[in-house]
Design a protein around this nucleic acid. Structure first.
Lengths: 248, 248
DNA sequence: TCAAAAGTGTTTCTTTTACACCCATGC
DNA sequence: GCATGGGTGTAAAAGAAACACTTTTGA
């Protein structure tokens, strides 16, 4: 356990990361179970004095997941003065989540930068941090009780994700390198919470010309082996320049 | 001039507001001319310890413009550790922009929350702050030299505005209560930087059913008097619930 | 009476939607 | 051989784009 204040972290600023993964046809979020307490928290951290905020967020993400160069984006600064109350810090100390000497650091007023991240579920190795007992994926549809305003932060991240999905193929970060059209469709249906027509879905996605067939198929199912597609970054960049989806 | 540190502001956190207005067929930004220095700055401020960050931004906006309840939205946290360098603070002191006793406050590493705001040009009474000589509208197409990373902040706000315009009728905040279809079209053309067909434009806007005719017309021009329209919030809310523009 | 901008409709083309049958695979 | 999901096309409808003439107003 570090002494945050002495080690030179930026004062009054924290980070919260909502890390989304897709597994078994569900959107899941990586959460931390607090020590000696039946409450869960978003992975987060603080910002070292000489590190950029985005950089610090990437670092925090790396520590919890073992992943680097991951989709990570700011979505909102939570700046309400009431969000980190004294009562909460008392509980942290009483339950032995943090030590007495860190109380003053945790008792500051914190403003928290919310990030959301999209990761490939199977690549993640969840690692708890110093204040948590374990680190686990939880389905968005069945969230455990969370500390302070973390549920609100999470929901806001989800809203942002849904919105971004309309503008950009951010979903690619949630899938493995090679995937079938049905897997992609299921992902869309899960995030949007509605069913889509299979033929129209395929046509629409392919019309963007950002996917290529790998030539391989996924075998093993008791049915026709589906084509495996791959995201083509170069084609995507070109599509972006030409305006993938524009309002006017 | 206040002593920020003593008066209890949140440490290491600043605000920058990009305030957009529309005048004479141009998008303009409200900027502050620094004292004794040929550099301009975005209006901004700091966050009182007991005030929410959004609230503090609204307060800063009010002080520069005299306006309350204005469209104001976060767009990015500028968290690069290099952004506020020692050299810049030296200059501020040497040119008498800030007094010696504030040097330590201004020498902190600041993380700055970027806000953008849309206001009705004619309602604004620009008021300089303590570190500026005057406060003025500057056209986006001809910006003066600005301090540190303020030009970057401004450009990023503009990108955000363009993007939001596709999703929501944020433009309503830039226009007076009553406006003609041509004025609205000019606004769109200005922000998007391209010409639009008059008939199609009108049809598209009206199809959203968020405007109503006031029954009045604007007279005085040497041409047919155009109908004045008004934004209808109630209709807009209804349209939003039904999904004004959805991707899927 | 003229210049300047306002108002208006139709046709074409593109995009989106709805919908059903045959195919490959593993058991 | 059969159950399961994979792959594919077309017609109808909706939406977007292109395009030009008449009207009102003030000078």
């Amino acid at each position: 356990m570090h002494d945050f204040a002495l080690e030179g972290y930026h004062p009054g600023l924290s980070l919260d990361c909502v890390i989304f993964g897709f597994h078994e046809n569900e959107l899941k979020v990586l959460l931390l179970k607090m020590k000696n307490w039946d409450k869960w928290a978003l992975p987060g951290g603080f910002v070292p004095k000489n590190m950029g905020v985005d950089e610090a967020a990437a670092e925090a993400l790396f520590e919890r997941t073992g992943l680097k160069d991951i989709f990570l984006r700011q979505f909102y600064l939570f700046g309400n003065p009431e969000r980190n109350n004294a009562d909460h810090v008392e509980k942290l100390v009483k339950r032995g989540v943090i030590q007495e000497n860190l109380k003053s650091w945790f008792s500051q007023r914190f403003v928290s930068m919310g990030y959301y991240s999209l990761v490939e579920f199977s690549k993640v190795t969840p690692v708890p941090d110093t204040i948590s007992e374990f680190c686990e994926w939880k389905p968005l549809s069945d969230l455990p009780p969370m500390i302070i305003d973390h549920e609100e932060i999470l929901q806001r991240a989800y809203q942002t994700l849904k919105k971004e999905l309309d503008d950009e193929p951010v979903w690619l970060n949630l899938l493995p390198e090679k995937f079938t059209m049905t897997e992609l469709q299921t992902l869309y249906e899960t995030i949007l919470g509605k069913q889509l027509d299979r033929r129209n879905f395929r046509r629409k996605i392919l019309s963007w010309e950002i996917l290529v067939e790998t030539g391989e198929r996924r075998t093993g199912g008791r049915h026709k082996a589906p084509i495996l597609y791959q995201f083509d970054l170069e084609k995507y960049d070109r599509a972006l320049r030409e305006g993938l989806k524009q309002g006017w």
